[in-house]
Design a protein around this nucleic acid. Structure first.
Lengths: 227, 227, 227, 227
DNA sequence: GATGAATGAGGTTTCATTCAT
DNA sequence: AATGAATGAAACCTCATTCAT
């Protein structure tokens, strides 16, 4: 599915990019604070730093703002995630690191992801389809990783389990934002990564040591750090 | 925290209960279809079977409708869950059954739970606090179960892990509704219960046999059914 | 073609009729004064005697107002015209009287007809088609009269000429409104009727005497009254 | 009344003329298609081949565009009409030819005349007055012709009748455009000229022969061609 | 207790016009 | 002379809420 076309009356592509960046930034803050429906276009314009007329030079409708936000957030998540992933790792280390990187990216983009998560349902059918497709492509990336791990003999899961596990990973990421009122009261992001990943891979004989790198458990007796 | 007071101009408590039941039922359908913000009070009144004037005899504001829905959904979930739980079970069987019962209740109240999940953020601060408190009380119930299981030596998890695991269980329930566009494409509720519970307890030497009841794994070699 | 359905949120049909009557009356005045496009819905509401919200209880969109006006004006013209026509007349007298009655009805509904004439082009395609159809049905009425007159041997015109003559009659009626800035400076409605009808039937040996009834010209030498 | 002054920021008169020509041409097309009010200045600028900024270098306001169009259309009609009129003709031939030429000019400038006719009411009072004055000057030309014909004994009409007849001639021209949805379905311009002129002069013993030139009827018995 | 017509604040969007480049 | 991004007043329309019946 192709990116939905958001109409603009302005020709200069560089300017469009800049102004839309302002819009997205302002919208994330506003949508977080009051939600998409209660935030007005006038407020978005003002928070973006220009007039309502100028706002509509760069979008076609209010929904376009939400679409721009959702699209941008996915791109940002994907971009940051790619940068954070260590392509040199293999096997278990790689698996852990991929997931942890994902959690940490979400942590760094909390507001953005929360909007994506809570408001995307207000998109029109086709825009929503596009966004869900992006979500599924993220899921596919995790599936690829898990299947490679299975091929390497590190984990043993059915396809169905892998699929579900990937949903769980993705949602565990989202949870960090949409349940922050509870989860972030008890955990910081380090702790959250540690325990969630532990939960995901319990039973596969894996462990993460204290200084944050992951290691195989070598049949040590259970200690505080062991899961 | 006490239940928020929803004002009514009508005296007859029995009538209030009846009419609010109609309102909640209609609102769940409508909020599912178009969301809380896009559904109008007129539509709610019509779907409830009476006039807009009558609607306002039983509520004070539109938000009250959402509050009534959220409150009722929790009560319904709790009620059904209690009925479904087998108080006689002990140990592992009990643990499994509590969780599975929870998933099945959510399955049977999909629309309701979805509304609760997607729209409760639109509640006012105090109403939201009340709803979140209910959510925490559900979490507490799971925590109690898990701690008992730990005391019985069935599982070994830190308090922190138990807390997180309970979040995961609750969210796994919600997921069944808010990710149904993907999850319910690949799973029916039986399969979902099986694999999600498996995922939660992998590594504790538990298993679920083919006919749907859970059992301890007795050192059998791993088979297809083994997790 | 059926009457276009104008949506109303109000149920009481009598009230709808009453309120729409108010709307039409107010709209005719306003549209005359500033034209359809420059008149605002708020102004229409105010001139109708109620709030903007109430206005929209009785219409679905601004265009509906214009449609209501056009539809009502045609009905009013037709209704008044029928009442004014003398069904007992035959032959020439009938022909003259039908046309004169038409002119006089338009005179009594000047503002209404002017709006119909100047603004109907702003209707949507299907509403416009409906209105033009009404116009054609009026033309058909004149054609019927002229053909009967031809059958009686009073006038001798080809079908093509009759068709065009009917257009001319209709437009001569409209002219009285849309060229009033010039025509009504030089004529009152009596004089206008007299000369326009004379113009239409010159050459058929007809005349209208001074006191307003029509008569056959009996080969008299031309006098001031003769055409 | 003097031509209204349309302000321009540009000095070069030749350029002004050229650019305004572009504007008028574009505006006629647009105003025909969507009407003056629904056409935007941006659209006019684009259709004219330059930017909105440049448009405003040559006009002071949107209304000026309409004024330029109306003014230009009159000039064009007058210019073409003069060229088409045969100054050598006398008497009846002259009378017929003047009217037919007028109809044919309007036919060749249909879109332009239609805009003039349908939108001029949106002009400001003074601009409208100027335009109506032009209309009256056209009427005066017809009056001059008819009076000369009366002096020559070709027709016998009172001053009042002549005035009205001239209105009718002018409106018969406009009709060809504003009732084209009906009239042009049944007639081509040749047929329209023939029958409308016939209608105007019925009873004066005039005729138009088959090959399109007009002639006096020489007491022949009425035939199909006779009116 | 039920009704539904009335209200008007406030939402989204448009577009004529300006002015710095 | 030409450009086009920026502006904001003002348009249309919605809908939660009230209150007379």
């Amino acid at each position: 599915m192709k990116k939905k076309d958001v109409p603009s009356l302005v020709k200069d592509q560089r300017l469009i990019k800049k102004r839309r960046g302002q819009i997205i930034k302002a919208a994330v803050l506003l949508f977080n604070e009051k939600g998409y429906h209660k935030a007005t276009t006038r407020e978005v314009a003002k928070a973006s730093g220009f007039s309502i007329g100028t706002l509509y030079e760069y979008i076609g409708s209010k929904e376009d703002i939400l679409y721009l936000v959702c699209d941008a957030v996915y791109d940002e998540v994907m971009g940051k995630w790619e940068k954070l992933r260590d392509g040199n790792l293999e096997g278990l280390d790689r698996l852990y690191q991929v997931i942890e990187a994902y959690f940490r990216v979400i942590h760094s983009l909390q507001d953005e992801v929360l909007v994506l998560y809570q408001e995307s349902k207000s998109l029109s059918d086709d825009a929503l389809a596009y966004v869900l497709e992006k979500e599924m492509s993220m899921k596919a990336m995790f599936e690829k990783e898990l299947k490679e791990a299975r091929n390497s003999g590190i984990i043993s899961l059915h396809d169905e389990e892998i699929s579900l596990a990937c949903h769980n990973i993705l949602v565990a990421g989202h949870m960090w934002t949409f349940r922050r009122w509870a989860v972030q009261r008890d955990h910081d992001i380090d702790s959250y990564c540690k325990w969630q990943i532990a939960q995901l891979f319990r039973g596969f004989g894996l462990n993460k040591n204290i200084n944050g790198t992951f290691q195989l458990l070598e049949n040590k007796p259970e200690t505080e750090e062991t899961i």
